[in-house]
Amino acid sequence: MTGDLAHAALKVFEGLPAATAGVGKDLVNEPMIRHWCEAMGDTSPAYEGPDAIAPPTMLQAWTMGGLSGHQGRSGAYDELFALLDGAGYTSVVATDCEQEYLRPLRPGDAITFDAVIESVSERKTTKLGTGHFVTTRMDVRADGELAGTHRFRILKYAPTARPLPEKKAARRPRPVVNRDNAGFWEGVREHRLLIQRCSSCGTLRFPWLPGCGACASQEWSTVEASGEGTVFSYVVMHHPPFPAFDPPYAVGLIELAEGVRIISNVVGVPYDKVRTGMPVRLEFMRVDEELELPVFRAGDAGPGSGCASGVVSGGDSGGVSGGASGGEG
């Protein structure tokens, strides 16, 4: 997790040196030029022979610290990085590079450089993650003469958390339980799917609400669903993937035998085999150690077409569907 850094604490670095009196580790030289050209596939004759110049785009390469690290890096730059690292912005990616070439570099040129921290952005969220852009500007000199300028922008960021498989399985979202629906969740805990019934007009309602949509009465009791139902409609979720869900999966609108409808997962059948009208039966699925949810299992109606008989046994395996029968409204 990343801690918030006050932008002001970062802005104080603007204008401070990023590198002072840096010295290129190598003189501009033919072997490094040749290695560069080989890597880039650059066959220009300008970079070989007695009048060779270095490819201008090598400008920054002459200032790189290599494996043995940077020299001449300023305390301010290290401090800024330590601050960003400490806040969790530990990754770096370069985003922009603007170079101006004032005179060509030739083998034998001795490189020196100074750089300043131009700006540190506010916290930004990018596809890669959240972090701060740090822009530096460097003057590169050859034998003391300004040869080029190099503006460089990096994003110092905390990578967007990718779903780390297995390690820390994400948990399903918790239901929001309040006074209006607490009774429903109590029922789920007891493996009973409870439907509200208006005490005045007898209308069944689901999901749970404080008042009757038909007569506005606030008096109600409950009836326990038989657990039988049919797929009234459904969607298959492909995208976007949510933590704890493994697309594609089918979400059904189930019409219960009692007439009300409930949204839940359709299980026991491949997502692409769910069909409207398909008979399903309630069961309770343990999601994790503290959450169970009512879901609907499609019968093993076999590959044949005809929608099997009305009642689909839910007692094939799972065992969670045990107590769902009885109590008719």
Binding site: M40, S44, A46, P55, T57, C97, E98, Y101
Partner: peptide
């Protein structure tokens, strides 16, 4: 840089590359 200098030939002078 190579893409552009390849196109214009070895006598072209690169002034600025901003990417």
């Amino acid at each position: 840089g190579r893409y552009v200098t390849d196109h214009f030939g070895p006598t072209v002078v690169l002034r600025k590359v901003a990417i």
